[in-house]
Nucleic acid binder design. Structure first.
Lengths: 234, 234
DNA sequence: CGACCTCTTGAGTGAGCTCAAAAACAGTGG
DNA sequence: CCACTGTTTTTGAGCTCACTCAAGAGGTCG
């Protein structure tokens, strides 16, 4: 029961509340769509385990990945909960989710205002992350852009799973996914990774990421941790 | 009194509350910094009149503009209100602001939960706008990118000031600002604007934007209004 | 009437793209 | 355990969109 939606201590009373509004947890296989741009979402989620990507597509197939969600992140909150979703979300690995029917969210906030405040924190953090990506995609060259993303993910993984320490961390992202997150082509991501590897900055293969020179990476990308420190979980 | 922070009707009781937590309105000249990345913000604002840009810079001067705020938008809400700001905001034109000391925000939300819910709406809308920009900057070529931004601004202006109708709307942005919003160079923005003008899609000069072929612009940029419709104001 | 932005145009370069194809890998069923 | 298939990674060659550098024209404000 301790792990039910909790990645930091929450008062007992509040926990009981949350449990009242969520239905039980579910599993989804890799590749499952959690919700789709243009369709009215029925459920919101807290991610327990696994990787999820949030993305948008243009009708000709161009895609941009908005963010990666890791354990503890909340998915599918949007301004108007009755409106169609403005982006899609898909499981990258098999995932475990805690389901909150969207229709329950507003009542939940109204009866437990503390949760509404927490939600505004969560969304504000998501916005800060989006701003960080905007900076990368708009103003950093491919090398810095990719390095920055990998540093971000490494930082977030380590915050969540400190046991990884200095060793390699699992990173189940294809080069195509990295490309869509950085606004580059798959091919150019490949070449850029090769360069980073040759410069002994990092190693990425077989789904494992190893930072070889964190110092150099941080100064190359001017990496700031602010935006990526975890926030309270619902 | 009707225009004090209100761009849509708000119940009397709620209005009284807001007024209790805000100090009176102020004016700032064009170019004034409202808050700066890395410094702890003291006030949050509702913008009454004028244009504000939110932006981030890298230490070597590269800059990206995250969003433009128009009348009714709320500025300077962030996850941790005690932390240094993660981006800067500057007045583009002279502005009129309604000031909320940051220290008052949390107490205000706690005593009036409805406002916390509205804040999460506002932030979620800002996030959706950021996502839209991410799509542009990451996946659209210069022409579409610039046209999309101009359409967005035109759409938002018209929603706020319907009296402009089909005519030209004031757009007090330099090409350098447009460039930093699109992740392009000033020079390339200039050439791209020239091309859009020659193709009779739009006219932009002397701070006036005129759409000449809205139809073509919408289909060129696949413009969706969803993200940009106004939300409740604080 | 200068001084300073902002806008405009030209010429040349390069980072990242497209097209094409081979090599490595992972999952599947026999 | 292996052949088979589809996905992912890797490499080469050539091109183009957007960038840099440079300089002139136009506006605006003291």
């Amino acid at each position: 029961v301790r792990r039910l939606g909790l990645f930091r201590p929450i008062p007992e009373e509040q926990l009981a509340t949350i449990q009242r509004y969520r239905t039980s947890q579910t599993h989804q296989p890799a590749g499952a769509d959690l919700y789709r741009e243009g369709e009215r979402p029925v459920d919101a989620f807290t991610l327990f385990e696994g990787w999820v990507m949030r993305y948008k597509t243009l009708d000709d197939g161009r895609r941009i990945i908005l963010s990666f969600a890791l354990a503890g992140d909340f998915l599918c909150f949007q301004p108007d909960l009755e409106a169609p979703a403005n982006h899609s979300a898909q499981a990258i690995t098999p995932v475990t989710l805690c389901v909150f029917p969207c229709a329950n969210l507003m009542p939940m906030f109204r009866s437990h205002p503390e949760l509404a405040i927490q939600m505004s924190w969560i969304v504000a953090r998501d916005e800060a992350v989006a701003h960080e990506h905007l900076m990368s995609v708009g103003r950093r060259p491919a090398r810095e852009r990719l390095a920055h993303l990998l540093l971000e993910l490494h930082y977030r993984l380590l915050a969540r799973y400190p046991e990884y320490g200095d060793g390699p961390v699992p990173l189940p992202l294809t080069q195509e996914i990295l490309a869509d997150a950085c606004g580059l082509t798959t091919i150019h991501v490949n070449r850029t990774l090769k360069a980073l590897r040759q410069d002994r900055l990092l190693e990425l293969s077989h789904g494992q990421l190893q930072l070889l020179n964190r110092q150099a990476l941080v100064s190359l990308t001017r990496f700031q941790t602010d935006a990526f420190t975890p926030r309270p979980t619902l």
